[in-house]
């Protein structure tokens, strides 16, 4: 695997008021790597990935995405958001637009693609997540699993180089989790750089190059899946694993 550095976080700190939600985060992610982040709720894992596309602002340290440092400069934020796709726990599709329009909106307005081309591309990605037959429906008419796949297609339509997943299956009914995970596995096999916050340990075992365990704003442990599950070092990791496995 080529070792082109995609994301670099150096001594990143963040506070919500007095609460130290990110405490000295250091992280390097290479092109094509798949990182799974897990940890108890409130451990800062969502905040960590939300810092990467500036949905949250870090207060100390440096975050460099594809050679561009995240600062308050809106151009650098826009450039990075163009390269980083994000999938949310609550899907966050735009309810007033059809699935097709959800997917073609940003390519048309941000990438400035001609309408027809943007819609073709949207159909292509909807086919890839297997909901092209729902393209003209509105989000409210789809099941949760279909909505989440549509949200993945929407992110992919911007042809990002990095994909962030913030607990993508946590809001889904159990029978729909698999269809979403299948899409994510397919994406991972296609070579996408991915950071996934999830408790789906089966998924982590199958695709992760590295699993990061976070607690109280710190990265407690970062290992390949085999070592992570077989030889966790820290007590906190052991306790966490015993609770979820």
């Amino acid at each position: 695997m080529s070792s082109e550095l995609m994301i670099e976080m150096k001594n990143v700190h963040k506070w919500f008021g007095e609460l130290h939600v990110l405490n000295d985060i250091n992280l390097e992610i290479n092109k094509g790597e798949k990182i799974v982040i897990c940890g108890p709720s409130g451990s800062g894992k969502s905040t960590l990935i939300r810092c990467i596309n500036r949905l949250e602002e870090h207060q100390r340290g440096n975050i460099i995405v594809e050679g561009t440092e995240l600062t308050n400069d809106s151009r650098s934020i826009e450039r990075i958001r163009g390269e980083v796709g994000m999938v949310f726990q609550q899907f966050n599709l735009f309810p007033h637009l059809s699935i097709l329009d959800n997917c073609s909106l940003a390519p048309i307005w941000v990438r400035k693609l001609p309408k027809a081309e943007a819609k073709d591309k949207a159909m292509e990605y909807l086919k890839r997540v297997q909901i092209d037959d729902q393209a003209h429906k509105y989000p409210a008419q789809l099941s949760g699993g279909q909505q989440q796949r549509a949200a993945i297609a929407r992110a992919l339509c911007m042809e990002p180089r990095i994909m962030l997943f913030d607990e993508p299956t946590s809001a889904l009914d159990p029978e729909m989790i698999k269809e979403v995970l299948d899409v994510m596995v397919g994406l991972a096999q296609g070579g996408m750089t991915m950071i996934v916050v999830t408790h789906e340990m089966g998924f982590a075992k199958e695709v992760a190059d590295s699993i990061i365990f976070m607690d109280e704003g710190q990265i407690v442990e970062a290992k390949n899946p085999k070592d992570f599950f077989d030889n966790p070092e820290s007590e906190r990791t052991k306790t966490f694993l015993s609770q979820i496995l």
Binding site: N53, R54, L55, S74, E78, R81, G82, V84, G85, M86, F88, Q90, N92, L93, F94, L105, A106, W109, V110, A151, R154, A155, M158
Partner: peptide, 18 residues
């Protein structure tokens, strides 16, 4: 408006006015 709508728009790169 749910916060998620703002976040999803920002995440796909829409500027404030768009």
């Amino acid at each position: 408006m749910p916060k998620g709508q703002y976040e999803a728009s920002q995440a796909v790169g829409l500027t404030y006015w768009r």
